[in-house]
Amino acid sequence: MAQPLLRRCMSDQIRDHLLECILEGTYAPGHRFVELDLAAEFQVSQSPVREALRELEVLGAVESQRYKGTRVRSPNPVEMAEAYVLRAILEQRSAELAVPCPTDVLDSLRATLASLHEAAQDRDVTCYSRHALDFHRSIVVQSGNHLFLEIWENVQTRARLPFVAQHLAAELDSCAALHDPILAALENGDGALAGRLLRAFMESLLDKLPR
Rank of each mutant, 00 (worst) to 15 (best):
L53I: 08
R54V: 13
R54M: 11
R54E: 14
E55G: 07
E57S: 10
V58H: 13
V58G: 01
V58L: 14
V58R: 14
A61V: 04
V62H: 02
V62E: 04
V62C: 02
V62N: 02
E63C: 02
S64G: 02
Q65N: 03
Q65G: 06
R66F: 06
R66P: 03
R66L: 09
Y67K: 07
K68W: 03
T70D: 04
R71T: 11
R71D: 01
R71M: 06
V72E: 00
V72Q: 01
V72I: 03
R73Y: 00
S74E: 15
S74D: 12
P75W: 08
N76A: 11
N76G: 04
P77W: 13
V78G: 01
M80D: 05
A81C: 05
E82A: 09
E82K: 10
A83F: 05
A83R: 06
Y84R: 06
Y84M: 06
V85G: 00
L86K: 11
R87F: 06
A88E: 07
L90V: 12
E91W: 04
Q92M: 11
R93F: 12
R93Y: 13
S94C: 04
A95K: 04
E96P: 00
L97F: 01
P100G: 03
P100R: 01
C101R: 03
P102T: 05
P102S: 02
T103P: 00
D104H: 11
V105L: 12
S108K: 10
L109E: 01
R110C: 09
R110D: 11
T112W: 01
T112V: 13
L113C: 04
L113F: 05
S115C: 10
E118L: 13
A119M: 08
A120G: 08
D122V: 08
R123M: 11
D124K: 03
D124R: 03
D124L: 07
V125Y: 08
T126G: 08
C127G: 00
C127E: 14
Y128N: 08
R130H: 10
H131C: 12
H131G: 00
A132G: 12
L133A: 12
L133P: 04
H136M: 11
R137D: 08
S138V: 02
S138T: 08
I139L: 00
V140G: 04
V141Y: 04
Q142P: 06
G144E: 02
G144P: 07
N145S: 10
N145R: 14
L149V: 06
E150T: 12
E150H: 10
I151D: 02
W152M: 09
E153N: 15
E153A: 12
T157R: 14
T157E: 10
R158G: 06
R160C: 15
L161A: 14
V164R: 10
Q166P: 00
Q166D: 15
L168E: 15
L168C: 14
A169K: 15
A170R: 13
A170N: 13
L172Y: 10
D173P: 10
S174T: 15
